[in-house]
Structures are given as structure tokens and as C-alpha cells.
């Protein structure tokens, strides 16, 4: 997240490809929860393109108000504390877009998502990207990149990980990676199964479709 106060999707306004990629992976007419739905850009897309029964959870009041004003069903809440109030299997798909790294307890959040939804779509910035690695190696400073643009003391991103770290966590929870899309310089590549070491080096972002398996 660039600005801790701005919504995750707001940051991605320039890279709508991320949202479209997620939307394309949602079955039309299903029930979807978008956690950290920001100003509702993805929810709007899901409603208009995929005719889903879309719900959202958003931390920032400004984001929530923007969503409800545009007619979306969104509540204010915190991914770390409020997912427990959702029922088992309440949704076909649960989405967490560019939000996991800002949660206090990523493991619990992912586990709760798996309880609530049949399928999970999670997108994360890749801290294993070569520019990040190079910054740290050559400059000896915390990297600042396009998708990780805040200084270490200002960033809301408190749990950064690489694509490989993420799939390790997915294994630990017992989830299956159905597919993964890597994003680099606005180009998307779909890969089957887990990302390789090469993907982990070249991708700026990863979008994972997970299932309980």
C-alpha cells in the first residue's frame, strides 16, 4: 500500500489489469466477499461484468462510504478481527487483493478466508522481485518500488513476503494453489501450480487462486 490511508484498490487504479484478472476468475452469478475492497472498484467490476452477489469489507471509513454511495454492499471492518463473524461457507469466492501484507495476522486471515469461502483469490506484491533484492543488496536499504512505495517507517505493509513464502504458508494451512498469475510491468502470465524460482525473481505481483483441495 502506497499510502496507509488510501485504499488498496485505489492504489491499483493505474493497473486495472490486476482487477480484471481477478474478475475473470470469478464464476458469474456466485456470491463473493472482497476483503479490503477499497473504494469498490473490483466490486463494481464484479457486479457489472460477472453479475455476482458481491459484498465487501473495508477498513477505511472513506472507502466504505464511497462504496455504499455507489450502491455496493460494504461494511466497515477489519480483516484481522471481523472475519470470525462470517459464517462457514458463506461465500463461493473470497478475495483479498493487495491487503494480506497489511494484516496483523496473515495466517489467521487466510485460515478464516478458507473457512468462509470455497475458493480464495489472493493477490500480493512480491518481495522477491529482483529490484527489491537488488535494492537491499546494493544500497543496503529497505526497497522502495512502484507497488511498495512508502518508507519503512510509514508503510502499512507490515508482513511482506515473496511468492515462495506465500505458497509455503498456503501449504501450511493445507490449501491448494489452483493457479497463479504473475504480473510484471503490466504483463500477466498464467502459470499452473506454484511459481518457480524464476517467477519469484521476475514477478512484481502474484495473483493466486486457492482452494481447500
Amino acid at each position: 500500500m502506497i499510502d496507509p490511508k488510501a485504499s488498496a484498490h485505489g492504489n491499483l487504479a493505474s493497473s486495472r489489469i490486476d482487477l480484471q484478472l481477478i474478475a475473470n476468475r470469478v464464476e458469474p452469478g456466485t456470491k463473493v466477499l472482497d476483503i479490503g475492497c477499497g473504494n469498490g472498484a473490483l466490486l463494481d467490476l464484479l457486479v457489472s461484468d460477472r453479475q455476482v452477489d458481491a459484498r465487501g469489507l473495508e477498513l477505511s471509513q472513506k472507502g466504505v462510504n464511497a462504496c455504499v454511495t455507489r450502491g455496493l454492499s460494504v461494511v466497515q471492518g477489519n480483516a484481522d478481527t471481523d472475519l470470525s463473524y462470517y459464517p462457514d461457507n458463506g461465500f463461493d469466492t473470497v478475495i483479498l487483493s493487495q491487503t494480506l501484507q497489511a494484516t496483523q495476522k496473515p495466517l489467521e486471515v487466510l485460515s478464516e478466508m478458507a473457512r468462509i469461502g470455497e475458493r480464495l483469490i489472493v493477490s500480493i506484491p512480491n518481495f522477491g522481485h529482483w529490484r527489491v533484492r537488488l535494492d537491499l543488496l546494493l544500497k543496503g536499504r529497505m526497497p522502495i518500488t512502484g507497488s511498495l512505495a512508502a518508507s519503512w517507517y510509514e508503510t502499512a505493509n507490515i508482513h511482506l513476503c515473496t511468492l515462495r513464502d506465500f505458497t509455503d504458508l498456503v501449504d501450511q494451512i493445507g490449501l491448494q494453489v489452483e493457479s497463479c498469475i504473475t504480473l510484471s510491468n503490466g504483463r500477466a502470465r498464467e502459470i499452473s501450480g506454484k511459481p518457480s524460482a524464476r517467477h519469484n525473481l521476475l514477478a512484481q505481483q502474484g495473483v493466486f487462486v486457492l482452494s481447500r483441495g
Binding site: 452477489d53 459484498r55 466504505v64 460494504v74
Partner: peptide, 16 residues
């Protein structure tokens, strides 16, 4: 709102 979510209801919640 939490109860409505637990019931799977279609709910919006705004604090003004």
C-alpha cells in the same frame, strides 16, 4: 452488522 454478516445477510454499514 456482525449478526447480519453471521446470518449471511446483504448488509452495508456506514459510520458517519
Amino acid at each position: 452488522v456482525r449478526a447480519l454478516n453471521a446470518a449471511g445477510a446483504n448488509v452495508s454499514f456506514v459510520e458517519i
